[in-house]
């Protein structure tokens, strides 16, 4: 981390260019944006979209993944669809979604979620294929309701797959959120980066980037990892 900062400082000093501002200039830009209230406003807007798109993608993708993983016939029928959406470029989905559903928040979040759903489906489907039949039989003998079986037998077995989908998911979603903000929203980190790109203000672009990366690191260490540790509490650790 320190080495990277040093390298950056030295290169910026050698380059002496607007295209590569020094860490000090970026820190100053963060201060300016923070004091004006813009930084918090746009970061919160982006974070909200990331969260909404993530919840929608995990819920819909998880449900589809479980159904396709448990039902061979449906899986055969819908597998080409999954592959199609998996390979559809994010930009195409975003542009079409804005054209068909208008430049609104729902279209924006829907487009982001739609980019992520196929990944979730593929991961969860793999997990749903490898569910232990022994537990399902136990549930049948003891008359578990569908909801009880889902909550206590299916979802705990899928937890590692949901964790994997979350890891890759949050990263993908926040990248796509920036694109939808750039193309059709009037706030958010993506919108600000686009604005400062037009002003050729690299310091402010880097300021927003760094702050948002920092926010995502905080989410990772303070939210995702504790949640995962909680879900894994029953495993006897080998350490």
């Amino acid at each position: 981390m320190a080495a990277l900062l040093l390298l950056w400082t030295v290169s910026a000093w050698l380059a002496q260019s607007r295209a590569l501002p020094s860490p000090v200039a970026v820190a100053a830009a963060i201060g300016v944006e923070f004091n004006s209230g813009e930084l918090v406003r746009h970061t919160v807007a982006t974070l909200g979209r990331v969260f909404a798109a993530f919840v929608v993608a995990m819920a819909i993708g998880g449900a589809i993944g479980i159904v396709l993983g448990r039902n061979g016939g449906l899986n055969k029928l819908f597998d080409p669809w999954v592959i199609l959406f998996l390979n559809l470029p994010a930009l195409v989905i975003i542009v079409l979604s804005y054209i068909w559903f208008g430049l609104n928040e729902a279209a924006a979040i829907g487009a982001v979620a739609l980019n992520k759903i196929p990944n979730v489906v593929v991961t969860i489907r793999e997990g749903a294929k490898s569910l232990e039949p022994e537990f399902a039989e136990m549930a049948r003998v003891f008359n578990f309701s569908r909801w009880k079986a889902l909550r206590h037998i299916v979802l705990p077995q899928l937890q590692p797959y949901f964790a994997a989908a979350t890891r890759s998911g949050v990263a993908l979603i926040w990248k796509v959120v920036l694109v939808i903000e750039l193309l059709g929203r009037s706030n958010g980190v993506g919108f600000q980066i686009h604005l400062h790109f037009q002003l050729f203000d690299v310091a402010t672009i880097l300021a927003y980037t760094l702050v948002f990366v920092a926010v995502m690191l905080v989410v990772e260490y303070l939210v995702l990892q504790p949640l995962e540790n909680h879900a894994r509490r029953w495993r006897v650790s080998n350490a």
Binding site: E134, F135, E137, M138, V141, F142, N143, H152, I153, P156, Q159, W234, R235
Partner: peptide, 15 residues
Amino acid sequence: KMAAVFQEPRLLPWR
């Protein structure tokens, strides 16, 4: 109601 004791205990490891 029928109940079963299986060969392996078949307890849910996460509960």
